[in-house]
Design a protein around this nucleic acid. Structure first.
Lengths: 203, 203
DNA sequence: TAAAATACTAAACAAAAGATTACGTGTCAA
DNA sequence: TTGACACGTAATCTTTTGTTTAGTATTTTA
């Protein structure tokens, strides 16, 4: 990409900063006001930045600026759930700890959320406080780790379907497996999704 | 937060989707056009969404919509390094796998990067393929996990300063600790930063 | 060294966009 | 049964905003 002049770098930095902090791009006039110049001059800089490939402009559109290439592009807001409760829609705002924007490439699917681990039933792989990435899906393969609603309470367990019914096992041997007959399983157990990643903060 | 009506949910979903794919929020009229309703009706829905706390509106501002609670606010692009090489400046583009935008609140400090783990010397805590979050700092406390350059090669180890000099230990007992006299340490060993988090993809 | 590109001022235009006024329908809980 | 509320049409008003025309001066680049 072509090099930028000092002024153009300043303008680009302002657009990025504005976008990041305000959530939407600035207008030509807002750029102008920030630098104390006329709208025309600001528009010239934006045109130059477009010509050099640093941002896109949609002509005639207010705030029609998008940053080319770098990160910003295509983010998905993944909700962080403190816990999941019975009945309530999955993304009920009550338990929303916040959201984490992740690149779409990482989270191909739409239906994804993050869940904070409590309890040690999946130790040592999952520790309390860990954040797990969950892809919503109604079934998982034998032995895969899933978020499961039992009677409305959410837990994370390995799921096994056996002759006698459904078995939910924690990795931690101190926690005995939960067994459900096919009937019980159908009534009480609901698989929310598969755990596809873990983030652990090391202190 | 108050529950939404079906129509309001649709409008909110549209705003989110628009923001995500276009990079800026829709205008009232764009919302109206999408649902085939009058601008007034669309504005009413947006007002309702604001009243119920799902988004903010900046009065009079075109595209002045921001999603409430959404992390979007303040992101820092954290570089993902495939490996770290000798001498070269830390963020040399050659080894850049990409960047991940993380909320500034998570990454208080500026000087932070992500490193892909290779080798099993820190197993089972760190597995090959794991992504570790590293905060750049020249010293770490006794026994903390650090990214260390030895002779230019980057490794992740626990750092112990003992009477005899510096000891770098992997958690995996199959890897013998590396010992350096104070002189050797000063010459060969360079602490890049502290490992403050791990992300592991579970397949 | 002449032509581009950069970096501006100033004024004005037309389209886009938010807000407002006025009106109408159906639902549902007090 | 009477509001409050969601949901809508239609038209209008006022700002905001992108763009255009016109012009000046400096710096780069071919």
């Amino acid at each position: 990409m072509k090099p930028l002049t000092e002024r153009q770098r300043q303008v680009l930095a302002f657009v990025e900063e504005f976008r990041r902090t305000r959530g939407y791009p600035p207008t030509v006039r807002e750029v102008a006001a920030h630098f104390g110049i006329q709208p025309r001059a600001a528009a010239d800089h934006l045109e130059a930045l477009k010509r050099k490939g640093y941002l896109h402009r949609e002509p005639g559109r207010s705030r029609g600026l998008t940053l080319a290439g770098r990160g910003e592009g295509d983010l998905v807001d993944v909700p962080i759930l403190g816990r999941i409760a019975a009945g309530r829609p999955l993304f009920a705002a009550e338990h929303l700890e916040g959201t984490l924007p992740l690149p779409r490439a990482w989270v191909r699917d739409e239906e994804v959320f993050l869940l904070r681990i409590t309890g040690e039933s999946m130790a040592p792989l999952l520790q309390p406080g860990d954040l797990v990435l969950v892809r919503v899906q109604p079934r998982v393969a034998q032995g895969e780790i899933a978020v499961v609603l039992i009677h409305g309470e959410a837990t994370v367990k390995r799921v096994f379907e056996e002759a006698g019914g459904l078995v939910l096992k924690g990795d931690n041997p101190r926690f005995p497996p939960l067994r459900f007959s096919p009937d019980e399983a159908a009534e009480l157990v609901h698989i929310v999704g598969k755990v596809t990643g873990v983030y652990r903060e090391l202190r």
